[in-house]
Simulated assay, not measured.
Amino acid sequence: MKYVFEILPSLFSGAGMTLQIFFETLVISLPLGMIVSFGLSSRFAPLKWLLNFYVWIMRGTPLLLQLIFVFYGLPIIHITFPRYLAALVAFVMNYAAYFAEIFRGGNQAVDRGQFEAAKVLQLTYGQTLRKIIIPQVTKIVLPSIGNEVINLVKDSSLVYVIGLGDLLRAGNLATSRDVTLVPLVLVGLIYLILIGLCTLLLRRLEKHFAYYR
């Protein structure tokens, strides 16, 4: 236990970096994904083609490869990001593409007749989206978004490849230094706790939107 308490501060410090990447990626990629989803359903062919190509690239290549490309590849064409910003750019671009496809599917699941009904009730387009469409879409996409949120917690460990001190990197350093698997066991427990908290929060959200049946 003495050893555990000695290494916990470094693990908690790494967990702080993990949570920072997680929250900032989520806050930026969710609204961006929603915007891209509207573009994917656009009647303007060039925009639709461009966004489909972007989604295809992001979903068709590993996040690890994208992370390496943003940090090590872009400087070749004189676009340089600090380590943390490079990680954030790669994560946001990747997860926005996944969220865009999820929202697109949710939008298509809502009956188009509801727009017509809203016009009869003399609701504006903004009111229709805010009060009728978005709440229903949110209920439909919540399970899929929940899976991506949980994946994001685990994927945040990939930032070690560009030298950021996240939770997994802190555990690996302690394991290599002290020749013991105890740090990695603790890392696993911390990830389980984080994912457990996310799961509880997502279930509460699903119950909140359960009245749209």
Rank of each mutant, 00 (worst) to 15 (best):
V159K: 05
M34V: 10
V27P: 03
N94R: 02
G126F: 15
V110M: 07
K119T: 12
G165E: 13
T199I: 05
T25M: 01
R177Q: 07
V161Q: 10
S176C: 07
L186I: 14
S29L: 03
Y54H: 08
I68P: 03
I77E: 07
P46T: 02
S176N: 08
K154A: 01
L40A: 05
R104P: 02
V159C: 10
D166R: 01
L67F: 13
G73K: 08
V159R: 01
A174W: 03
F209R: 01
L40V: 06
V179R: 15
L19Q: 00
I28M: 10
Y3C: 09
H208Q: 10
D178H: 07
L11M: 12
T175N: 15
V36C: 07
T138L: 15
M58R: 07
N151P: 01
I190T: 05
I57E: 06
L11R: 02
L67Q: 13
T175P: 03
V179Y: 14
L88N: 00
Y98G: 02
I7L: 05
L184Y: 10
I7R: 00
S176W: 14
L168A: 03
M34H: 05
D166P: 01
A170F: 10
I79H: 07
P62C: 13
G171Y: 09
P31R: 13
F44W: 13
N107Y: 03
L205Y: 11
I28Q: 06
I79K: 09
V149A: 04
F103D: 02
Y98M: 00
F99K: 04
E24M: 07
V137P: 01
P31Q: 14
L47H: 08
F38R: 13
L189N: 00
L88R: 00
C198K: 02
V187Q: 08
L67G: 04
E101G: 12
N147T: 06
L88Y: 00
N107A: 06
Q108K: 12
T124I: 13
R83W: 14
L74M: 14
L32C: 08
I162W: 11
L164R: 02
L197W: 05
I190W: 07
Q66L: 09
I140C: 02
V89A: 08
S13F: 05
Q136S: 13
F209V: 06
Y98I: 00
L192T: 10
F12P: 01
L32M: 06
K139S: 13
L30F: 02
G39H: 06
F23I: 00
M17N: 04
L167D: 03
F99N: 09
I68R: 13
L164A: 05
N147W: 04
S42K: 05
I79L: 15
V55S: 08
V70Q: 06
V36K: 08
P46G: 02
V153N: 06
T18V: 04
R204V: 11
M93A: 14
V141G: 03
V70L: 12
I21V: 14
N172W: 08
L186Y: 03
T124D: 07
L192C: 12
L205K: 08
V120Y: 12
L158F: 07
R213A: 07
L192F: 14
V120C: 14
E206Q: 04
L26K: 01
Y84V: 00
P183G: 11
W49K: 15
Y84T: 05
L192Y: 11
L32F: 04
I162K: 04
M17T: 12
R169M: 12
F115L: 14
V70W: 09
L63K: 00
